[in-house]
């Protein structure tokens, strides 16, 4: 950790910003988990609750934005602090989008609950676990300023993409077999896409963490570098 700030108020505000990001991350992670539970267990009540909770995520997004604006206007941050704030601004957008994805999953789950289940879910929960763990790890990297961990997250994105492709083919097979299944399969395909997006956002966060710590931009480089 760097030495504490000479300006205590500034230091405090930066800590609060970090805390807000973490709170938001934790909440979003829980949203994904709950969304997946509601899908797997066909629990419409839980899905409704997740949708309702998205407001909180949105509220936190706005709060983080405001904190960053304040810090920029009042303290003219430079260096590490500036990068933290830039990262926060991006991360909060990503997290908000992830929150939206969770909400979308729940919406699809509610629709699926109105029809009989297509099949027991195997790949989707696995994919959700992957995406969630990527998100968690990127947030861990953010907290610990751990670029190694962030880099690992980036490298795992490909695996999620591959899983998405697998699910796509599986669903196509269902649809070919049974035209009745098309609407459900499509919805599940959507959910797979959502999870893939969540992983992408987690990757973005990880990339921003690397920028925050090292000042290096590795975005839009594929494949991700082996080390930073």
């Amino acid at each position: 950790m760097p030495p504490l700030h000479t300006d205590r108020v500034y230091e405090e505000e930066l800590q609060q910003l970090r805390a807000k990001i973490l709170e938001m991350g934790g909440l979003v992670e829980k949203q994904i988990g709950d969304a997946m539970t509601s899908l797997v267990e066909r629990n419409s009540t839980l899905a409704q609750a997740v949708i309702a909770r998205d407001h909180t995520v949105n509220y936190l997004d706005v709060a983080v934005d405001e904190s960053c604006t304040r810090l920029l206007a009042l303290h003219q941050p430079a260096g590490r602090d500036l990068r933290l704030i830039m990262t926060s601004l991006k991360v909060t957008t990503d997290l908000e989008r992830v929150g939206d994805m969770a909400q979308n999953i729940c919406e699809r789950a509610l629709e699926l609950n109105e029809e009989p289940p297509l099949k027991p879910y195997v790949d989707l929960p696995r994919m959700a676990d992957w995406a969630r763990s990527m998100l968690r790890e990127s947030l861990d990297a953010f907290v610990r300023e751990d670029t190694e961990l962030a880099l690992q997250v980036c490298q795992r994105d490909d695996a999620v993409d591959k899983l998405t492709a697998d699910i796509f083919h599986e669903m196509l097979a269902f649809m070919r077999q049974d035209p009745q299944a098309v609407s459900r399969a499509t919805r599940l395909l959507f959910i797979a896409k959502y999870l893939e997006r969540i992983a992408d956002h987690a990757t973005n966060i990880a990339e921003m963490v690397i920028y925050m710590v090292k000042g290096k931009n590795i975005r839009h480089i594929s494949p991700p570098p082996a080390s930073v």
Partner: peptide, 12 residues
């Protein structure tokens, strides 16, 4: 690190 600390106001 010294530069970082100075420009971000973490000094002394």
């Amino acid at each position: 690190q010294e530069t970082e600390d100075y420009i971000t106001g973490r000094f002394g």
